[in-house]
Nucleic acid binder design. Sequence first.
DNA 1: CGGCTCAACTGGTCAAGACGAGTTACCCAG
DNA 2: CTGGGTAACTCGTCTTGACCAGTTGAGCCG
Lengths: 253, 253
Amino acid sequence: MVDRRSGVPAFRQVAADLREKIASGRFSPGEQLPSERDLVDSYGVSRPTVRDAVNLLRAEGLVTSEHGRGVFVRPPASIRRIARSRLSREARERNRGAFLADAAAQGFTPSTSVKVRFEEADDRVSGYLAIEPGSDVTVRDRVMRADGLVVQLAVSRLPRELTRDTAIEQVDTGVGGTYARLEEAGHRLASFVEHVGARMPTPDEASLLQLADGVPVITVTRVAYREDGSPIEMNDMTLAADRYQLSYEWAAD
Amino acid sequence: MVDRRSGVPAFRQVAADLREKIASGRFSPGEQLPSERDLVDSYGVSRPTVRDAVNLLRAEGLVTSEHGRGVFVRPPASIRRIARSRLSREARERNRGAFLADAAAQGFTPSTSVKVRFEEADDRVSGYLAIEPGSDVTVRDRVMRADGLVVQLAVSRLPRELTRDTAIEQVDTGVGGTYARLEEAGHRLASFVEHVGARMPTPDEASLLQLADGVPVITVTRVAYREDGSPIEMNDMTLAADRYQLSYEWAAD
DNA sequence: CGGCTCAACTGGTCAAGACGAGTTACCCAG
DNA sequence: CTGGGTAACTCGTCTTGACCAGTTGAGCCG
């Protein structure tokens, strides 16, 4: 039952009560919550109010609802760790890229689809690549799948001058991927920087990555630099935050 | 006007139309959207339907609504970059910690409040620290503020044995912070690992960090290791994803 | 002219009711 | 015993209507 005189909105009281019951384990992961009609009776509020409460919990990522079945406590998804800084030259020479290598190690069958296109650099891109706004940029748009499921989106951009007459403008870049072709062309890679952030997905991303409500995406912008410190490539990656963590390691001094 | 025969729910059509108008710039950042009553008229739907649409956009982080004022397009927050791997020994010897150093560099007045407590290690903590579940752990709970605003929560945990009779169990750990005291006690730090993820905030976190709807938090778990590879400290950090990005850098091989 | 009041906005909350659509389990006919 | 249909659940959508609670600005009054 809700307290009408407390000043706290009824749907927030209902949400808080359900949240507490989930946190304390009285509703365990995967378990079905009482039906909306039952909640209407037990809290003494109308159905829209109950639905407001459930919507709040859904936006927090605590529950999912399935049409015709019920509302369920979201079981914690198994989180896969992705170790970064594994872009060593030797590894590149052995594999077709980090993604396929990880896949083999972790026992799922990977696949990727790639689209290559060309565009003019906007302010963000030109800033990262240290080129003039409006210059030609080669864009490699990748969708990575594990067992058919989309797990990561990656958009790689390079100044067009660097990719002319190379396999980088082809769908299949060959053994070692883009970075190997760049080094063959005399652009030795010296360092990488990754900028990590998070945000809510666009509707497109949510459907592609099959994200439940209340699940953010992790965004990674990786920039590869030459030995003189000039940027050579940028790569925007998008991952489901309920399935992935990134791990970075470094020495203490 | 919504298309009733399309099969797409009305509130989603309204949301999609508003989203498109925002993306295309017809509603610019900071600008006020038409009032809910106006939207009712222009789309020919009821107010709860309009509110469902606006709620969707709020959960996506696209708009914020202010009681009595209106609904506004969320201007992109200025994102601060936090460079990691700045935990060098020399820097520690100069400062009281990375946070205060960054603050001074970026020109805001920092403050932190610390609570020290002791608890028994649960499965997660014992796993990270490689100790027996149930062993005593020293917990330092920090709230970091910039110009009075809470910007980061940090919870540091160490095996109790390491902190007895040291300043680590005091609120003020002195120059160089926890890591400096550990090294004085003969525990030389060799490496750090950070696990980065994201999720929606709990209601507590949302109010502490003053997060708008639809803004996730970035979670960082940093583990410090000795030279023999054994863990010595873990630190759970929580940041507002609309204000911070983490930057990691490493050499190509 | 300055300060206050109040009306007319804004979004926030809640009810009652109706129908649609997906899922599941049961029952009955073959 | 099996198969299919159906009834009874589930959540999804949408309407009408009402009142509350902040915010703002115009206009009145001192």
